[in-house]
């Protein structure tokens, strides 16, 4: 069994990733501190999602995807043979760009992960469901319709449901791939507040195309360009005095 109780900082060294012949990530080195929000920014196709998906090994599902380098969460080696991929994914949750609620009731959506890991007792599940929905600040909106299909919710509600669904697995790290790009400003605001709250216990890595969002929520920001990590540091530094001309041009909206 891998132990996810230690420090949850992420350390990536000499990461290279190929889709077939295509070199999608080039020599990435990055240290992501625990219990902070780290934003990945950069123009479309630069490899942000690809990088994110390394951390919960979703790229394993992609044929012809070759990855080299060293990847650690605390002292767990992500790609070690001993590392159980399902346990890894339980502890490294992921929220996708497009809300993807399962076609089942709200309750069953949230209970999916705990049931996966063997929790059957009704009272225990009830508690996890309520807790997770509360943490995702959607409990009040859905508490009277837990048995209703999750597909009947609004887009913003669905996305918070998906966050709650991830939280129900009790992850230590939460990866979010443009979680608010399909949402209206009010839902976006709610999810941003949520991240503020969640980072007390969780390490959050978020991909965003929205510069204001990065400055609002991220402690650190990494700028990717064409598969390379151009610049990485405290968000305030990156946005007030970017060290690289390309970073400056991107964040001031002059390309990308």
């Amino acid at each position: 069994m891998i132990d996810f109780t230690g420090k949850m900082n992420i350390s990536v060294k000499d990461c290279n990733l190929y889709y077939g012949d295509f070199h999608a990530l080039k020599n990435i080195n990055i240290e992501i501190p625990e219990k902070q929000v780290t934003a990945l920014i950069g123009p479309s196709g630069c490899g942000k999602s690809t990088f994110l998906k390394i951390l919960n090994r979703m790229n394993d599902l992609v044929e012809d995807c070759k990855i080299t380098g060293s990847f650690k969460i605390g002292n767990i080696d992500i790609f070690d043979k001993e590392t159980d991929i399902n346990a890894l994914r339980k502890n490294v949750g992921m929220v996708f760009q497009k809300p993807n609620p399962f076609p089942m009731s709200i309750y069953d959506n949230i209970a999916f992960a705990p049931r996966t890991f063997g929790i059957k007792k009704r009272s225990e599940l009830d508690e996890i469901v309520e807790n997770s929905l509360r943490r995702a600040s959607i409990w009040d909106e859905v508490k009277d319709r837990l048995k209703k299909s999750a597909l009947g919710m609004s887009g913003g509600q669905q996305q918070r449901l998906c966050i709650a669904r991830s939280l129900a697995a009790n992850p230590k790290i939460l990866l979010m791939d443009e979680p608010t790009s399909a949402l209206d400003p009010i839902s976006t605001g709610k999810i941003e507040e949520l991240m503020e709250e969640l980072k007390k216990d969780l390490t959050i890595v978020i991909v965003t195309h929205n510069m204001q969002q990065a400055t609002r929520i991220a402690d650190n920001t990494a700028f990717f360009l064409l598969g390379e990590l151009i610049e990485y540091g405290a968000t305030d530094d990156i946005f007030s005095s970017p060290g690289d001309e390309r970073t400056e041009r991107y964040i001031t909206g002059r390309f990308g």
Partner: peptide, 10 residues
């Protein structure tokens, strides 16, 4: 949906 399920450790 498949991705969502795998990402939860299923």
């Amino acid at each position: 949906l498949r991705e969502g399920s795998y990402a939860l450790g299923a």
